[in-house]
Design a protein around this nucleic acid. Structure first.
Lengths: 177, 177
DNA sequence: GGTAATTGTTAAGCATGCTTGACATTCCTT
DNA sequence: AAGGAATGTCAAGCATGCTTAACAATTACC
């Protein structure tokens, strides 16, 4: 049972924290709009205090992910931009998969994607990309299968997905999977 | 941007904590083996101190998920067993999807599944179950599509999935998805 | 029944990540 | 250049979840 003890703790041993990832994502979003944010901009964007932003940003500097210029403007380093690319890609890939392929409601898909974006391996992210590309392709088998799958889902449309329904589905999973 | 500030914080607002979920899973695993664990058994199973187990188990009792009998034996309440069913189902569903459908290496699939088991919505879990069932079925479109998809993956076999490869895949996702 | 080992609990400490309030610094405006 | 507002930082506090060490309660065994 030794492996069990080491596996479940891996949850806390990720490249980056959920919180830290969103600081980086926020800075990247500003940069994409052509803006160089200050700490207060990130704080407002994330809905946290200036003090918290100050502390977290110092930590991100020490990790070499963020730089502050003479005008107190925040910039991602190369390493920081890489983290953002990996996290943002995974979020988008998961979101699209859940919403477009699985038919999960958009809000739920976005929320689930946000929660797991920094936890999934690159291997899983890459595999999901391949699956989405395949299912979006003109390949006849892909189109047919997608069509047939959507029909199996039709009996449980989004409107009907109450907690009871999904709970029942999940509780049954042990035996039915 | 107000929605952004509220969305990312939802990470910390789950039904249950990763840590707490594994206490419950550990108790459930003992019960399945016909054993009634004590706190020390859970502590050893999870690789944490007795003190930590004592504190967390008290919290779980207060949440009505665990009960302790007169002989200090731990039992899941109905609510606790429900949490375990939901979390364990999602973990298994994600693991099978990653490993069997996407072709992710078993260790990576198990680790990713463990990390997200308590974060995904029931809706996503239920949808994944439907997809797995469909793809495992004898439906010709499903078999064909699965076959064709596996071939697209063949160019990037597990052995070749170095960080460079998966990073490249993910970094390209923004434009290629 | 008594000793010894095991088990449970408490206390203090550490790390993360947030809070508020006070203070320092910077910048804008006049 | 001076005043006032905006911004950054520090300190103290709270919550979670872990640690170790000390102590208490239980169980096991002779």
């Amino acid at each position: 049972m030794e492996s069990f003890a080491t596996t479940w703790r891996a949850f806390a041993a990720n490249e980056i924290t959920h919180s830290a990832a969103h600081y980086l994502l926020a800075i990247a979003a500003f940069n994409r709009k052509g803006a160089d944010p200050r700490a207060v901009d990130v704080a407002r964007e994330l809905g946290i205090s200036r003090a918290a932003a100050s502390l977290q940003l110092r930590s991100l500097q020490e990790q070499g992910l963020v730089e502050v210029d003479t005008r107190q403007r925040l910039h991602l380093t190369r390493a920081g931009a890489d983290v953002v690319a990996r996290v943002a890609s995974k979020r988008e890939v998961v979101r699209v998969f859940l919403e477009e392929i699985l038919g999960v409601r958009p809000e739920a898909a976005a929320l689930d994607a946000c929660k797991v974006e920094h936890l999934l391996s690159e291997e899983t992210g890459a595999a999901l990309i391949r699956l989405i590309r395949f299912l979006r392709s003109q390949h006849p088998a892909a189109r047919e299968a997608l069509q047939a799958f959507k029909e199996t889902t039709a009996s449980c449309p989004p409107e009907a997905r109450c907690d009871l329904c999904t709970n029942t589905c999940l509780l049954a999973a042990g035996s039915l999977l």
